[in-house]
Design a protein around this nucleic acid. Structure first.
Length: 152
DNA sequence: GCCAACGTTGGC
DNA sequence: GCCAACGTTGGC
């Protein structure tokens, strides 16, 4: 079992949208590192912090889980989609995604500002200056600290 | 809306 | 293969 953090702008897709949909395709990721995590390392059942970026406040909004094996991102093949990428061919897809399912919404977003104050999160990717990675692994010890107190 | 930090692109 | 220019991310 691995742990992850996935960023989404709530104006585009929020934890409430996921709660409503139950499950969603995590499409549109166009960063190789993020893709590699989804394609090669995510396993069904892995837990995910749903992170609101560019938000008021930015922070962890709840928990989701990986709902299946990775597969090619269909939006890369769709000329009309904003995430269309002519380089990605159906025979050799460039971009992959996983389905993500809703687990829980936290009563309150755990704001980045608060996360920064929590002891024991040294080395967490999210807190590294300039880390824009939208899909990133979370160490189990960091996961445990951040979920302490059952922040449901 | 600003801007620093990145990643990508493309000329050479 | 270098690196400047450009585009994007995301906190503030």
């Amino acid at each position: 079992m691995k742990y992850w953090l996935m960023k989404s702008e709530p104006d585009v897709y929020s934890i409430d949208d996921l709660a409503h949909d139950g499950k969603t395709m995590w499409d549109g990721v166009r960063n190789y590192q993020a893709r590699n995590f989804m394609r090669d390392q995510m396993q069904t059942g892995d837990l995910v912090f749903f992170y609101h970026s560019n938000a008021e406040p930015s922070g962890i909004a709840g928990i989701a889980k990986v709902a299946g094996k990775s597969y090619p991102d269909p939006t890369a093949f769709d000329k009309k989609d904003v995430h269309f990428d002519p380089k990605s061919k159906k025979e050799a897809p460039t971009w992959y995604l996983v389905d993500v399912a809703f687990v829980q919404k936290w009563k309150q977003v755990l704001a980045l500002e608060e996360i920064k104050k929590i002891k024991g999160l040294e080395g967490m990717l999210l807190l590294q200056k300039g880390s824009r990675l939208s899909v990133q692994p979370v160490l189990e010890k960091h996961w445990k600290i951040l979920t302490r107190g059952g922040r449901v």
